[in-house]
């Protein structure tokens, strides 16, 4: 797994992908920080965190699109799958490499905290909790993007489908549908279930939990379990191809 991880991480910085991801992410994050915090002269980063999640929706597909689809297109996946490594190691190696690049991006924006220290007194513990939430959201997005990359050999399709799903998740979070009201009578039970599901996939609400300065284990588990689920699904997809 270590070898795969190193290979993937190196690949990000031997090609423009890693640099493009970092520069675009830092550009938009800095823009938000400068206007939301420095412009409004406030040290609370809760609005910053809520908005930075939206940047992830656009930049993470760039980070994950090539993870498996590129290998598949260039047929190097056959080499990889016949190598003496477990499929889970391959998937984890790639996942961790993408997560590391994400972490570099998030960590770079942590420089905003000492900048605020120059002009005010930000609440460091609360801010770090916000960063943890942001990172976990990114980890979930990376896992989902990697899964999408594993099901297609086209990088463009992988990127666009990931963007579409992430965008749908983001927009659904802000919707106020009430299925239990729409589906009355005997279908009320189904409506209630759909309401729960809609509430469940509300990633914005989970992110808000971190922006309040509390470390709640429910959203931590939420993001990690979903990331785990998509890593697992990716393993199944690759294994299936391996068996074929």
């Amino acid at each position: 797994m270590k070898a795969i991880y190193k290979r993937e991480l190196r690949a990000y910085f031997k090609t423009p992908v890693g640099y493009i991801f970092l520069s675009v992410f830092i550009f938009f994050a800095a823009l938000m920080f400068v206007f939301i915090n420095m412009g409004a002269q406030q040290t609370s980063m809760s609005s910053f965190f809520s908005n930075v999640g939206l940047i992830f929706v656009f930049v993470i597909p760039v980070l994950t699109m090539r993870l498996f689809s590129e290998e598949r297109k260039s047929k190097t996946d056959q080499l990889l799958l016949t190598a003496p490594v477990r499929v889970s190691d391959i998937v984890f190696g790639k996942f961790l490499a993408a997560t590391t690049v994400l972490l570099i991006g998030v960590a770079a924006t942590m420089l905003f905290v000492p900048i605020m220290e120059l002009y005010g007194t930000p609440a460091v513990a609360e801010t770090l909790v916000g960063y943890l939430g942001l990172f976990l959201l990114g980890v979930f997005f990376v896992a989902l993007g990697m899964f999408m990359s594993s099901v297609t050999e086209s990088q463009v399709i992988a990127a666009v489908s990931t963007l579409g799903i992430l965008m749908a998740l983001w927009l659904l979070s802000g919707m106020s549908l009430q299925f239990s009201e729409i589906l009355a009578g005997s279908l009320h039970f189904l409506g209630a279930g759909l309401d729960w599901l809609l509430d469940f996939i509300s990633i914005n609400a989970r992110l808000y939990d971190f922006t309040l300065g509390t470390l709640n284990f429910v959203p931590v588990f939420y993001f990690l379990s979903l990331a785990g689920l998509f890593v697992f699904l990716t393993i199944r997809v690759i294994e299936r191809r391996h068996w074929k």
Partner: peptide, 19 residues
């Protein structure tokens, strides 16, 4: 949570350009 900062216009534009 949160407090206020005191950032002058020059500082704002300087950080905007840097970041």
């Amino acid at each position: 949570p949160g407090g206020s900062m005191s950032v002058s216009k020059t500082q704002f534009w300087t950080w905007l350009v840097i970041l």
